[in-house]
């Protein structure tokens, strides 16, 4: 065995590297990560001030603020982008640091279910408050 795995035989190192080649889904992941990032710039800045405006309000005032159509719409957009972007980021972190295969796959599955359930539950909560305001 030589010092580097790619040089352990007469095969070209590049030939060996190519066998480990791309999974062909990287560009899609890259693009969605940046798309959600751009959307999150205005959404999170708005949320920062929206959340600060709720400080020390009573329950009825909080419901009124969340239930305003524009606010509810922005909260749902934020939810979808936040969970999607977070899922893509945690996906990379798991891929980089978890080297035990069964654990990696388990975490990836849990991450996808968790992100979907989190986004769905948050969206339903906002919709429930919004519909209650309409009546």
């Amino acid at each position: 065995m030589s010092e580097f795995p790619g040089q352990s035989s007469v095969r070209e190192p590049l030939k060996i590297a190519r066998n480990w080649g791309a999974s062909h889904t990287g560009a899609h992941h890259w693009w969605l990560q940046r798309l959600t990032a751009v959307a999150l710039i205005p959404l999170t800045l708005w949320f920062l001030f929206f959340a600060a405006s709720l400080v020390q309000l009573d329950y009825a005032a909080v419901l009124a603020a969340i239930g305003q159509s524009l606010h509810a719409f922005a909260l749902i957009l934020l939810t979808v982008c936040l969970y999607w972007h977070g899922m893509l980021g945690l996906d990379v972190i798991i891929g980089d640091y978890v080297h035990t295969r069964w654990l990696e796959v388990t975490l990836q599955i849990a991450l996808r279910f968790g992100a979907f359930l989190g986004a769905l539950a948050t969206t339903l909560a906002v919709l429930a408050i919004w519909f209650a305001r309409l009546h």
Binding site: G86, A121, T122, L124, A125, A128
Partner: peptide, 13 residues
Amino acid sequence: GAVVFTWGLIAAA
């Protein structure tokens, strides 16, 4: 933080 965000909105609802 996203989990806390979700908790807050479910709590409000």
